[in-house]
Design a protein around this nucleic acid. Structure first.
Length: 875
RNA sequence: GGAGGCAUAGCUCAGUUGGUUAGAGCGCUCGCUUCACAUGCGAGAGGUCGUAGGUUCGAGUCCUACUGUCUCUACCA
């Protein structure tokens, strides 16, 4: 094969991917002779395109899958996409808005038709993008959260949970997004510290001069107040409990109640109670049988319960008017700035409102317990381990999960209401009559399920659940779940309790978490900052392998990382290095018969590199097993660049260009052996370049991705021999060092004298030493008494002497040093003169004076060194 | 309020169960158009491992406190 001088991934990546697909390398077979290894993709949303987070996800997973596949497992990487109910719906609504359309205009059917079109377009695009980065997923099993299988699983799970009493419908305080006009789960709310105000309000006691002061950050909610609460232990208010207050503006009479919830220390110690618009107040309301008065509409405007003066006003306009009116009637005592945490919708970022609403919930306590146990008993292991604490923390305090969404795109809730008898029919299949009265007047619930409800089933719904399919039997439970730590709550935790509840098994044994890929300055990538990186552009410029390698190198599990062009360039340079080392090996193999390693006699250098390779195989294998991909990749980088390229290839040149035919053949055999193994080790990380090169190595057959992963073997460790070879490298390094110290060009040939206790290894490799150190000849001596001036340096095993005359032309060197000394002395004079000048020292900026002093010191030091060099030269 | 991460070279980060002289990439300095590669080669400079204690024969690594910083989580109206 003719290899180009420079690595150019564009010439082969697409070609190879097509070939892999065509040959069916990605397809996972249910082979009873093999052990299955399964990872399901964290399904990307169909909302847009791939970002670096996906690239990282998929690089990690693909590396693990390729590793296991090469180790002989039946490795299944199961790909798919998520319908992303709310996220997609928001996007489609935005798109429609540009055309002047609303959901009302299209109606449910029309909207869903549009959504499916969207899915076709963007779902397909994501798949193409994943292919571009080399993902070896089994595309024949491509799944979608709303495809037939997954939808059936959703129905099955919903109905089973309902029948067990673990799904219920009720009026509860939920997070309402007035932008998306839907309920949200707790996990879907993002909090941020926003600047606001604290309004202190005075509520008068009925038929009395007394009053009670309460404070609020949301004054408009006072229109829905149905009580004021104080702590039962609070002596200040003991006499007030049971009295009646008159709610300003509204005129409603509300009681003063005593409740433990109230913190006596905070504020005035009295709290206004708005059961319909605050989760804590709702609980207080339940305990005291208070009315629940909802004063806000779904779109964030006030409703008729708020009173004629406010009905129809937006919540913020209503707030202003309420404050103004309270002020006018003297009920507003004071206003103070107050910053507090405000919840925002994770999709549209509007401020969410806690609102009482009739929604569907999953009862979490019974589900959380076994899910906690599974991790506590190590049936599921988090990597890094610290995330199990975060998981426990969340699971132990978990509240019921609000699963209904007032959206259209998603799995419609499988509940039908009967207009005749008023009963509910909950069914896995669409019923045509009421299960209770058999009436035909049934309507399906309008709402859909939280998108994470279906994602929670992903590891088994994609494998055929609830059917007991062959895939399910063979591949479930899956092995590793890898994703970013930012979706532990949304996804990982829910898969764990769902898997245990519905399949009786933990859905995976290992959870491998990675961090967030940030921008060069450490900021999160986001649309609003415009600092996002399109992985496809990186692939276009540097190739998929460089992107993949840069994403996993120097990164520890669970830690955030920064993307930078520099890192990708470093990875690209490494690819180029591998490319050229391979080119060197293959060029030298041309026209030669290469015997296997076992058929040749290995020299010291050969055993050294084989030993290093063995160590590398060991390190890579063990670290892949521990999910330490960064360490594994780093080990490969060092081995290939330093050990193989910088040392072994250079050492090999003596043999390759020498006269000893057997030695040359043995060297070629070693070069091929090491390259073959190194490429196979590297393949999980950088699949394209490794395959492109590997197939050209003499003796290899088929594609590298179905070749076997190298096994470490202590027979190849050659520990003693590798150690014995080190003095050779020490001598070479020492000579180079001496030359550099005196400014002798590395290529200039010098004679060497070596005093060593053990000469055998050094003399055996004299040719290599001469070549790599740039020596014209090597002579072994007993001591340093050589009868000529030399520079010497001591290594661990010997002393190296280089004749001074060889290093430099003494006359020329003396001249050069003289000039250098002259220059430095001049500089000293200049700097000293400046510093002697009082005006400069007193008036110039301090930093400038300091800098000048530093310069002077440096030049004086240089002068001394040069003078010493001249003295040494004179002898 | 609760929890967790991070703090190591100028910058970005590795450092696996505690164990020789703490590493890499980029940047910097010096020298190289050496026949695989200038996307390169050789040689360097640069670190009191955040602070203070403790455990240990031995601490970047384990423990405690503190400082700085980031994140998650709950929420006090």
């Amino acid at each position: 094969m003719e290899m180009q001088k420079n690595y150019d991934p564009r010439t082969f990546e697409d070609k190879l991917y097509a070939e892999w697909t065509e040959k069916g390398y990605f397809r996972a077979e249910r082979d009873p002779a093999k052990i299955p290894f399964t990872i399901v993709i964290p399904p990307p949303n169909i909302t847009g395109q791939l970002h670096l987070g996906h690239a990282l996800d998929n690089t990690i997973i693909d590396a693990l899958i390729r590793f296991k596949r090469m180790q002989g497992y039946s490795a299944l990487y199961l790909p798919g996409c998520d319908h992303a109910s709310i996220a997609t719906e928001v996007k489609i609504v935005e798109e429609m808005k540009k055309e002047g359309l609303t959901k009302k205009d299209t109606g449910r059917e029309g909207f869903l038709a549009r959504a499916w079109q969207w899915k076709e377009k963007f779902g397909g695009r994501i798949v193409e993008q994943l292919k571009k980065i080399g993902v070896s997923a089994d595309w024949s099993r491509l799944a979608f959260t709303m495809d037939e299988n997954c939808s059936r699983a959703v129905r099955e799970v919903f109905v089973n949970l309902y029948e067990k009493g673990l799904i219920y419908r009720g009026d509860r305080i939920i997070n309402w997004c007035p932008g998306c006009k839907t309920a949200l789960s707790d996990a879907e709310v993002e909090y941020s510290e926003d600047a606001g105000f604290f309004w202190h309000l005075k509520y008068p006691v009925k038929d009395s001069d007394e009053s009670i002061v309460v404070a609020t950050t949301r004054p408009e909610t006072m229109l829905g107040d149905t009580a004021v609460a104080v702590n039962p232990k609070d002596g200040r208010y003991a006499h007030m409990v049971g009295k009646t207050l008159v709610l300003p503006l509204v005129g409603r009479e509300i009681p003063v109640v005593a409740d433990e919830y109230v913190d006596m220390e905070f504020g005035s110690g009295a709290v206004k109670i708005t059961p319909a618009h605050d989760p804590n107040d709702f609980e207080v309301g339940l305990r005291h049988g208070l009315p629940v008065i909802r004063v806000m509409n779904d779109d964030g405007t006030m409703n008729e319960n708020a009173g004629a003066a406010y009905a129809g006003l937006d919540r913020y306009a209503a707030r202003d008017k309420v404050v103004e009116d309270l002020k006018a009637c003297g009920a507003l005592i004071k206003v103070e700035p107050h910053s507090h945490n405000v919840g925002h919708c994770y999709r549209c970022h509007n401020t969410v409102e806690p609102i009482v609403s009739k929604q569907w919930f999953v009862k979490m306590a019974p589900l959380a317990k076994p899910a906690i146990d599974a991790v506590a008993r190590n049936k599921i292991k988090f990597t890094p381990e610290r995330f199990s604490k975060i998981y426990f923390n969340w699971m132990e305090g978990i509240k019921d999960w609000c699963i209904s969404r007032q959206l259209w795109w998603g799995h419609r809730i499988p509940v039908w209401y009967c207009d005749d008898c008023g009963e509910m029919t909950v069914s896995k299949t669409d019923p045509c009559e009421c299960a209770h009265c058999h009436g035909k007047n049934i309507r399906q619930d309008e709402d859909v399920l939280d998108t994470w409800f279906s994602s929670a089933l992903w590891p088994f719904s994609t494998l055929g659940y609830p059917e007991k399919t062959e895939d399910y039997d063979y591949f479930y439970p899956t092995d590793v779940l890898s994703c970013g730590y930012d979706i532990i709550f949304f996804w990982v935790a829910r898969m764990i309790f769902s898997g245990i509840e519905h399949t009786g098994k933990v859905p995976f044994r290992d959870v491998l978490l990675h961090g967030i890929v940030r921008d060069e300055q450490g900021r999160k990538m986001s649309k609003s900052l415009g600092n996002g990186i399109d992985p496809l552009e990186v692939v276009e410029e540097y190739g998929a392998d460089s992107l993949r390698f840069s994403l996993v190198t120097g990164v520890a599990p669970g830690n955030d990382s920064r993307y930078s062009k520099g890192k990708v360039e470093a990875a690209r340079n490494f690819m180029n290095k591998v490319w050229n080392a391979s080119r060197f090996v293959l060029m030298n193999c041309e026209g030669e018969a290469i015997p296997p390693l076992s058929a040749v006699k290995l020299g010291p250098a050969d055993k050294w590199i084989v030993s290093r390779l063995e160590g590398c195989i060991r390190e890579v294998t063990l670290n892949m097993g521990k999910f330490e991909l960064g360490i594994a990749a780093g080990a490969l980088y060092d081995f290939l660049w330093s050990d193989f390229c910088d040392w072994y290839i250079e050492l090999a040149k003596s043999a390759l260009y020498g006269q000893d035919k057997a030695k040359k053949t043995a060297t070629l055999s070693v070069l091929c052996f090491v390259l073959d193994n190194a490429l196979r080790l590297l393949h999980p990380f950088v699949p394209f370049i490794t395959d492109e090169i590997w197939r050209n190595i003499p003796g290899t057959e088929g594609g590298i991705m179905v070749a076997s992963f190298p096994r470490y073997d202590s027979k190849l460790a050659y520990k003693k021999e590798a150690k014995a070879f080190e003095p050779v490298m020490d001598v070479i390094k020492t000579v180079r060092n001496i030359k550099a110290q005196v400014g002798c060009p590395p290529a200039k040939k010098v004679r060497l004298y070596i005093a060593a206790a053990n000469r055998r290894m050094l003399s055996l490799n004299a040719g290599a030493i001469a070549r790599l150190a740039g020596a014209s000849g090597i002579e072994f001596v007993e001591s340093g008494d050589l009868g000529e001036k030399t520079l010497s340096q001591v290594t661990e095993t010997c002393t190296v002497f280089v004749p001074l005359g060889e290093l430099v032309d003494v006359e020329k060197e003396r001249e050069r040093l003289g000039k250098e000394l002259e220059r430095v002395v001049g500089e000293i004079g200049r700097a000293d003169g400046k510093l002697q000048n009082r005006g400069f020292v007193e008036k110039a900026p301090r930093a400038l004076v300091d800098a000048e002093r530093a310069k002077l010191e440096k030049f004086i030091e240089m002068k001394q060194k040069i003078e010493k060099q001249i003295r040494d030269l004179e002898g």
